[in-house]
Amino acid sequence: MEKYKIIEHRADLKIKVFGKTKEELFENAVLAMNDYLQPEIKNSKIIKRKILIKSFDIKTLIVDFLSEILYLIQTKKETYFKTDFKKFTDTEIYAFIFGRKVKKFNEDIKAVTYYDLEIKQKEKNLWQATILFDI
C-alpha cells in the first residue's frame, strides 16, 4: 500500500496519507513529514524519544502529534523513521519515536495546519488523512 502522496497546492504542502489502521496512518504521516524535509543524516546512531499528547478529537490529535514531532525535529536536529505506539485513542497518544541526528535539512516546514483536515476510514483496512503543512 502506498504510504502517502503529495497533492497539488499553490503555496503549501498538502499530503494524502494512508494506513491499514489509525496507528499506521499516524506513523505514515510522520514519515511523510520527515521525507519532505530531506534530511542529511549525521550518523547511524539510533535515538529514541517519548511522545505524550492529549487532544480534543482525532483531527486535532494528528495535528498536535505532528506538531510535537516537528518541534523535536527542529530543536534536536533529528529525523524520525519509526513510531511505536504504547497507547492510542482518538484523543491521546503515548508513543516512542526512533530516529537519527541530522547534519542539515534541505526543506523547511513552518507548521502543521488544521485547515481542510480530513481523517476517514475509506474501507476495511484503509484509513486516509489529508493534511496541509505551511511551508
Binding site: F56, T60, V63, S67, Q74, T75, K110, A111, Y114, D134
Partner: peptide, 19 residues
C-alpha cells in the same frame, strides 16, 4: 521557528475554547 511555535501553541489551545 519561534513565531511558528507561538502560532502553533495558540491554535492548539484556542480550537477547543472557540468551539
Amino acid at each position: 521557528g519561534l513565531g511558528h511555535q507561538v502560532c502553533t501553541d495558540y491554535l492548539r489551545e484556542f480550537i477547543p475554547l472557540m468551539e
